[in-house]
Amino acid sequence: MLVDQGGWIYAIAFVTNLQHFFYRKDLFEQAGLGVPTTYAEVLAVAERLRGAVGTETPYGAAFKVGWDLGTEFTNLHLAAGGRLFEPGTAEPVFNGETGAATLELMKRLLAHMSPNAPSLATGDVTAAIQQGRIAMGTLWASRAEAMDDPAVSEVVGEIGFAPAPAVLPGGPPASTLFWDAFVVPKTTRADRETVFQELMAGLSEETVRTGGDLADWIRSAAVPSRCSEAVAASIRAETPSFPTQPFFALAHGVIGRNIGDFLAGGESAKKSLDDAVADYRKAAEEQGFL
């Protein structure tokens, strides 16, 4: 798919990725549990699954302070109907009531995660599911295929996938849509025509038809796999796009760094978010956004 802004084409998008819900089908069946569709249900299920995998903490998500934590906040905050900025401006508004409620939810989730969670990123959570150390988690769709690879996974065939739980009943999944795209820089020393032909050959109908489980291709010819159905369902449920405003990168950074103070119990949710807003203002003013 051609990506364009105001008529100016600048990339060719070819795969999507988003976070969705991973769960142990066998354990859920044993306990007679349904797949949770909201985070309130996730918390209830976590309570029921306590001890099911030999640990008190059956839930997992990439809460590593920094990029990962900032992303989790963004997903949950948007799904709770929160806004990050005043529409059309770079004015931050993520330190309101919705922001504080989002942080409270994150703290409740953290209680069901490994105490090391603030240091654990996507790779660690993936390994925890693969080793059968947690019973469920919110994780990137791109990690789904490796759940069925016996070289890395102890739980081949046992993992089910579903759209990320919502925050508001009936609301959109608490996730954001990413897409990867090709760009060819003007300054490349290779022959641009050849590069383009190579890329197109890589995205041929044959590739996307036979490689359905490798990625969630953006091509109508792609054949859905066991892993990609949850992605398609997430898109149908109107998962929003990951924010792309240039100043969002600044907000994302300061949120990821500041809210760890609250999650660790050092300060109030309001104070963490106010600190983040203060840091954001400084950075945004320096770069001319405010």
């Binding site: 390994a127 693969q130 080793q131 150390r133 016996p150 070289a151 890395v152 996974s153």
Partner: peptide, 9 residues
């Protein structure tokens, strides 16, 4: 080792 053994619990 294969990852499944390397990070075994």
């Amino acid at each position: 080792r294969q990852p499944v053994d390397a990070f075994a619990v």
